[in-house]
């Protein structure tokens, strides 16, 4: 998938089933009990961090994924 296509499809412009259901894929998400994939993330001040830095900070880390809307 071309980068621009991915950006516009992921950041869909309307909450209609043909646009949002394609992304809901929890069944294929990483398994419990196995090392999780790592990704870059950014603090609000735009400093780069990583998911691995976040989970390394504490014995347990709760990570909520969400949006404004």
């Amino acid at each position: 998938m071309a980068t621009n296509d991915l950006l516009s499809l992921y950041n869909y412009d309307a909450f209609v089933p043909e646009k949002f259901t394609r992304w809901m894929n929890f069944e294929a998400s990483p398994a419990i009990g196995n090392p999780a994939p790592d990704f870059p993330l950014w603090h609000l001040d735009e400093r780069e961090t990583r998911l691995s830095q976040i989970w390394a900070e504490n014995n347990l880390t709760v990570v909520e994924f969400g949006s404004f809307t």
Binding site: M24, S29, P35, A36, A56, L60, T61
Partner: peptide, 18 residues
């Protein structure tokens, strides 16, 4: 990669194991 649900929660241990 983590399933794209709109409002989901994961808990990781310090080794990066969910």
């Amino acid at each position: 990669t983590y399933g794209s649900m709109p409002n989901m929660t994961w808990i990781f241990n310090q080794s990066g194991i969910p």
